[in-house]
Amino acid sequence: MIPAGFEYHRPADIASALSLLQTHGDEARVIAGGHSLIPMMKLRMADLSHLIDLQDIDGLKGITIAEDIVSIGAMTTQNELITNDELSRRIPILREAALLIADPQVRYVGTVGGNVANGDPGNDMPGLMQCLGAVYTLEGPDGSRAVAARDFYEAAYFTAREDEEILTQITIPVPSMSGYAYEKQKRKIGDYATAAAAVMVGGGNASVAMTNLSDTPIYSAEASDALAKGDVDGCVAAALDAIDPQEDMRGPIAFKKHVAEVILRRAIAKAQERAA
């Protein structure tokens, strides 16, 4: 658990960070909270020579709430997300999900941007962002572009982000649906989900996404459409069809599929109850 040597960079603005990324290519990685990257470095599974710390870049922090859209800077911590009352009033599912991530110590340092950018299928925020129809802003040498969370994840740790790009912001349309629930089964505090489901429902609309049941988060348009029509069984069938869980210490595939259904049904029931 001793990392190999690396150069540590701490740029003060995004342009300097991008320049460092360009100079060092795939030998460099940006670090946000570091809760995923540092263990990988200590295990010597992440092989990098340059670590670019984003914490001094002011423009990456903070939460802005407009009438129908919320913007969250990538370096906003999970704790800042949880403690922002106005945000929780507008999009309460964010707090509900963030409180199920790790433990308070991790949430003081772990960032929303790191969580969504890393591409770890175990992270909770990616599925949630898909459910909410969030859009990620990617800054690169040629300017910025926007990628929908639903189009961002390609495989475990592979995303639409190019090596020289930095995910800087997450924008979330304030949902019209009033019913929401984030349900997660885990073995203990700090664990990734055995299965987790994000559900929004209300006003004839619905959105359904699932976490850690495939090599990417799973948003299912079919399941969402079925739920929008009030067809719970159809929604569950479509969602279960979309997942592809793997066996690990949390249990065999059949168990995970079973729990996925139980958790999804609980999330739907809770969301429908809140919508009513």
């Binding site: 089964q185 055995t194 249990g251 065999p252 079973h258 729990v259």
Partner: peptide, 16 residues
Amino acid sequence: HDHWRIWKIAKDLGLH
């Protein structure tokens, strides 16, 4: 008796 093993007990006993 972790989650999946308890689930398996219930499953094998036909409780699902």
